[in-house]
C-alpha cells in the first residue's frame, strides 16, 4: 500500500490521491487530539490518543518512512499505550466521565497554546511557504536506516541502551511497593 501511494505520486493524479489521504489523516489526527485534551473521560482520552498515534504512523507511511511507521505502531500502540492504560487502571480512574480533570482558567492554557501556534505558523509559512516535497521521492529503506544507526549513530544507540536499562532499574525501584 505504501508503495502504491508513492508510485502514484509520480503523476498529478497520484499526488492528488496522496493529498486526499493526507488531509483525511490530518483531520482525524487533529480532531482526535482535540478530543483527547478536552474529554472528561480518562479512558476515552487514551483511546483518542490511540487514534492520533495511528494517524501519525500513517503520515510516516505517506512520507516514505516505513520503518518509523512500523516502530510507531509497535512501540506506541503496543507498549506505551498499554503502559498508559495500566497507569489509568492502577490509579483507579473512574470508568466514565469525571469532573475534576482540568484546571480552572483553561483560557490561560488556550492563550499560550494559541500564541505559540501563531508564532510557529508564521515562522513555517515564512520559511517554507510553497516549498514542495521532491517529486521523485522513494521510500527510505529499512536497511539503510539500520546502516545509519550502526555507523554514524552508534554512540547514541549504545547510550540509549544504557538509558533504557537505567530507566528499567529505576522505574522498578520507584514504582514497587516496599
Amino acid at each position: 500500500m505504501t508503495y502504491l501511494v508513492l508510485q502514484t505520486q509520480l503523476t498529478d493524479t497520484g499526488e492528488w490521491i496522496a493529498n486526499i489521504f493526507f488531509y483525511i489523516i490530518a483531520a482525524v489526527a487533529i480532531v482526535a487530539a482535540l478530543r483527547m485534551v478536552t474529554t472528561n473521560n480518562v479512558v476515552h482520552a487514551s483511546l483518542y490518543l490511540l487514534v492520533v498515534l495511528s494517524a501519525v504512523a500513517a503520515t510516516y507511511v505517506i512520507l516514505g518512512a516505513e520503518f518509523a511507521a512500523a516502530t510507531q505502531i509497535l512501540v506506541y500502540l503496543g507498549a506505551i499505550m498499554v503502559l498508559l492504560l495500566f497507569g489509568v487502571m492502577l490509579t483507579r480512574a473512574k470508568i466514565g466521565a469525571e469532573t475534576d480533570l482540568d484546571h480552572d482558567q483553561k483560557w490561560i492554557g488556550a492563550l499560550v497554546a494559541a500564541s505559540l501556534g501563531a508564532v510557529m505558523g508564521y515562522s513555517l509559512w515564512e520559511g517554507f511557504g510553497d516549498v514542495r516535497m521532491p517529486a521523485d521521492q522513494v521510500p527510505q529503506r529499512t536497511e539503510a536506516v539500520a546502516d545509519e544507526i550502526f555507523s554514524t549513530y552508534i554512540v547514541p544507540f549504545e547510550a540509549l541502551s544504557v538509558l533504557l536499562l537505567a530507566a528499567l532499574i529505576g522505574a522498578v525501584v520507584v514504582a514497587r511497593r516496599d
Binding site: I108, G109, V112, S115, L116, V119
Partner: peptide, 13 residues
C-alpha cells in the same frame, strides 16, 4: 509550565 511555554513563546516572538 505556563511560565516556561509562555516565556518561550514571548521571547521567540
Amino acid at each position: 509550565a505556563t511560565l516556561m511555554f509562555g516565556a518561550a513563546t514571548v521571547l521567540v516572538a
